[in-house]
Simulated scan of single mutants.
Amino acid sequence: MTTAPEALADDARLAADLVREAGRLALRMRADGVETRTKSSISDVVTEADLAAEALVLERLVRERPDDAVLGEEGSSRDGASGRTWVIDPVDGTYNFAHGLTWWCSAIALTDGDALLLGAVYHPHDDVLLVGGPGLPTTRNGEPLARLEDRPLGESCLTTYLHPPFYGDAVGDAFGRVASRVATLRMLGSGSMDLTAIAQGQLEVSCQHSVPPWDRLPGAALVLGVGGSHRRTSAAGVEWSVTGVPSAVDAVCAALAAD
């Protein structure tokens, strides 16, 4: 379905408001002290701030977009009649957030069926808001970002999030084929923040496997909005999400598929 430019701009303004409100709420709560509990592993955690920020976003979406569906990382789920879905990550990089690090954000994406319409990511520490999508040139605090400069994988910085238990199996082997071809590697702990860095030309390509929609879609929209590429490919029995400058994305996908 095609979204009119005026309607897309209105959705982008709402997305910007939502992530800014959620991020500022989380930042205030962290300053006051938050309790942390483990989800699936010691590095997969949730705080009271995640839950409160997601509830804030859900409440406003129910009010302002009552026909749209909602999918949230912390369990918010709501069916809709419009075919559109808001995908919420109230605090992306919760481990960093809970341990006093600054590489975390609030993120949201809007889809229409299988089509990604837009993403918005707010970094509270630097008060930076990025909004963009495939049909919406990405902006940083309202200013357009430059189009990405393409470069080969061998001149690119790769960012990822790969847990150590995967290093010694087929998944680790597949990732090793990628890592051996890049200029350098970073593992910073927030997928959406990593993709904001790619959209701003600070990093070149991201490669992760088994990425849920809330960790993938908001940042991918920003990268697409500056001429980048976003692909999903299967290798070593898992699905990989690869996002960044086009030549590096193509080379990563080829390396993953190689035996």
Rank of each mutant, 00 (worst) to 15 (best):
L129C: 11
L130R: 09
V131G: 15
V131I: 15
G132L: 05
P134M: 11
P134V: 10
P134E: 10
P134W: 08
P134R: 06
G135M: 09
G135Y: 04
L136V: 14
L136P: 15
P137V: 13
T138Q: 11
R140I: 12
R140H: 15
N141G: 15
G142E: 15
E143W: 13
P144W: 14
P144Y: 14
L145N: 06
L145P: 07
A146E: 08
A146G: 10
L148E: 04
R151K: 10
R151S: 14
R151A: 13
R151M: 07
L153S: 06
E155V: 00
E155Q: 08
E155W: 03
E155D: 10
E155P: 01
S156E: 07
L158D: 01
L158V: 13
T159A: 00
T160C: 02
Y161W: 15
Y161D: 14
H163V: 03
P164Q: 08
P165G: 01
F166K: 00
Y167I: 04
Y167N: 10
G168L: 04
D169P: 04
A170F: 06
V171Q: 06
G172T: 11
G172E: 14
F175L: 02
G176S: 09
G176E: 14
R177T: 03
V178K: 02
A179M: 13
S180V: 05
S180Q: 03
S180Y: 06
R181C: 05
A183M: 05
T184C: 08
T184Y: 03
L185R: 12
L185P: 04
R186M: 03
R186P: 00
R186Y: 06
R186W: 04
M187T: 11
L188R: 06
L188F: 13
G189C: 06
S190V: 05
G191D: 06
S192A: 09
S192F: 04
M193Y: 02
D194M: 00
D194F: 00
D194R: 00
D194A: 00
L195R: 13
T196E: 12
A197Y: 07
A199H: 01
A199E: 10
A199L: 02
